[in-house]
Design a protein around this nucleic acid. Structure first.
Lengths: 157, 157
DNA sequence: GCGACTATATCGTGTCACGATATAATTCAA
DNA sequence: TTGAATTATATCGTGACACGATATAGTCGC
């Protein structure tokens, strides 16, 4: 069974590995840019993500800890800890939901708004530059990339 | 100066924040998929990244610790520690470069090859599915992105 | 051969997410 | 209503991992 496992049935070509590696490298570069930008703005990368998730939420009146956890793909307790650190940093304020007093509404402070705006401007600029690169890398993996059935027109490479 | 800083000269619209948040959420989802896949294969996400970086490198005879550090955007000492953990796990073997005995050549073991192949297959499949989504989100941020086809050039908000 | 430089390794530290658990608030059934 | 089950958030101890500072080994120019 180990010999004909489905996952190993179709060998990956050297070109596939190169493309995957290049894609992940591009991803890391973007994330590194983002982290550096956040730290330059005086906040941690996770805090930046949290600010964006809150600011980009449908409800403009603040979001709950649970919402933050779902957006950031964190466990609820981790989101509560993150929110706690951000409150201590003066980035967020906690409020209570009127209808359900278990819930805590997280709202950005003015300084957080300011930092997020600057970061968002920089990120939009960066994305406009690097999007074509990522696009190109995704393109290579998408169509007949690892190819198996269809033949693509060989562009040399 | 703080009031008219360049970074804050152009306010970001609510739609921009939503788009940026959606983009980052999609990115986190992909990374979460990747992490879960790696852990299911019995390795850590960083180890998976390292295996891919090594396997996708131009030289097929192993890569140096320094190369690994540059590809993963880590400090050299962190790459050495990562390599150390991977050798202890039986994922890598260290070899010496013939021309420069300071250098260490990292090579995948058979079990690492097997794990990486399975992971790569899963990742290519996942990327083919989620690429259109990421594409769409990038599209929105790219061109005139933040805005609208109609009536841009706004002087207002 | 000697000093400057490069490549890798070691050690102590700090951050952060997690599991387990606790506390508070809501819901629902009887 | 009461009170058990459920949901939302918070607390605490732990572990993984990247880092800075530093150490060691190897190479190169002179």
């Amino acid at each position: 069974m180990a010999t004909s496992e489905r996952a190993s049935a179709r060998p990956i070509s050297a070109a596939d590995y190169r493309r995957l590696a290049a894609f992940r490298h591009a991803l890391r570069r973007f994330l590194a840019f983002s982290e550096a930008a956040a730290r330059k703005a005086g906040i941690t990368p996770q805090q930046h993500q949290a600010l964006l998730a809150i600011k980009g939420a449908p409800s403009a009146a603040g979001v709950t800890v649970g919402y933050l956890a779902r957006q950031l793909l964190l466990q609820p307790n981790s989101a509560a800890e993150l929110a706690d650190r951000m409150v201590n940093c003066g980035l967020l304020v906690r409020g209570e939901a009127a209808d359900d007093r278990r819930r805590v509404l997280l709202c950005l402070t003015p300084s957080a708004e300011k930092a997020l705006q600057a970061l968002s401007t920089a990120h939009i600029r960066e994305l406009r530059e690097s999007a074509p690169v990522v696009d190109g890398l995704l393109e290579l993996l998408k169509p007949g990339g690892a190819k198996s059935h269809r033949r693509q027109r060989t562009a040399s490479t």
